[in-house]
């Protein structure tokens, strides 16, 4: 019978709390930058410019068809060979942004393509400028349509960030691993980590739901 001993975990809750903060910070930065990359990617993919479309196609296919672990290794250990050297924490964020950007590009592209052509023509008929049409007639309804897919991708990004300790970046999982190396209370530590990741995911869900209520709660015909 395994004897539970949560003592070492509770004594070091500040360590785990700090790790959780690092995970939240890293995820938020990666989500914001990832959203920008996804938007640019989606716009490039739906634009008529062929070479640009091909370029984004290559990016999306390469990233979506290779493991994240390999991508992060490549960025941290491979890029110094061509003179690009980043700190582990920066490399982790770059890897997360590149990864979520590829998935986000496809999700937002689907959203943009879901806007019927008639809606854009209606915008033109109302005398809106091309920028206004893009912003209010295309992007906003598009984001509203794919909001659940995009936010679950973001939550998945937060959970995926737990592997960044392989390049010695600091986050909640690495805080747990360090604590484990000192106290050997593996089961207790990982149980607490599970609960903490779950609460983080729940927190992000709540945040996303609040954003949705504020920005996308206008009535729609569909």
């Amino acid at each position: 019978m395994y004897n539970f001993n949560f003592q070492p975990v509770f004594e070091n809750l500040d360590l785990l709390g700090y790790g959780a903060l690092l995970t939240i910070r890293m995820s938020l930065i990666a989500m914001v930058l990832g959203l920008i990359v996804s938007m640019l990617g989606a716009v490039a993919k739906t634009s008529g410019i062929r070479p640009l479309r091909w370029l984004v196609d290559v990016y999306v296919e390469v990233i979506r068809n290779t493991p994240f672990l390999i991508q992060i290794f490549f960025i941290f250990f491979g890029l110094p060979a061509v003179g690009i050297s980043m700190s582990p924490d920066t490399a982790a964020i770059v890897a997360l942004v590149i990864n979520v950007g590829a998935y986000g590009t496809e999700i937002i592209r689907a959203g943009i393509e879901s806007i019927p052509g008639g809606q854009i023509e209606a915008g033109k008929a109302l005398g809106l400028s091309p920028v206004q049409i893009f912003r209010y007639v295309v992007v906003k309804p598009a984001l509203r349509n794919i909001y659940p897919s995009l936010t679950s991708q973001f939550i998945y990004l937060m959970l995926t960030s737990s592997v960044v300790s392989v390049i010695s970046a600091n986050d909640l999982a690495s805080a747990g691993a360090d604590l484990n190396a000192r106290t050997f209370a593996s089961f207790e530590i990982y149980l607490v980590l599970t609960v903490m990741y779950f609460l983080l995911a729940l927190g992000f869900s709540t945040l996303f739901a609040a954003i949705r209520r504020n920005f996308f709660s206008y009535p729609a015909s569909r």
Binding site: F76, F77, A81
Partner: peptide
């Protein structure tokens, strides 16, 4: 192996 990789890649 990974610690060595960090050394060899100059990180």
């Amino acid at each position: 192996a990974t610690a060595v990789q960090a050394l060899m890649s100059g990180q």
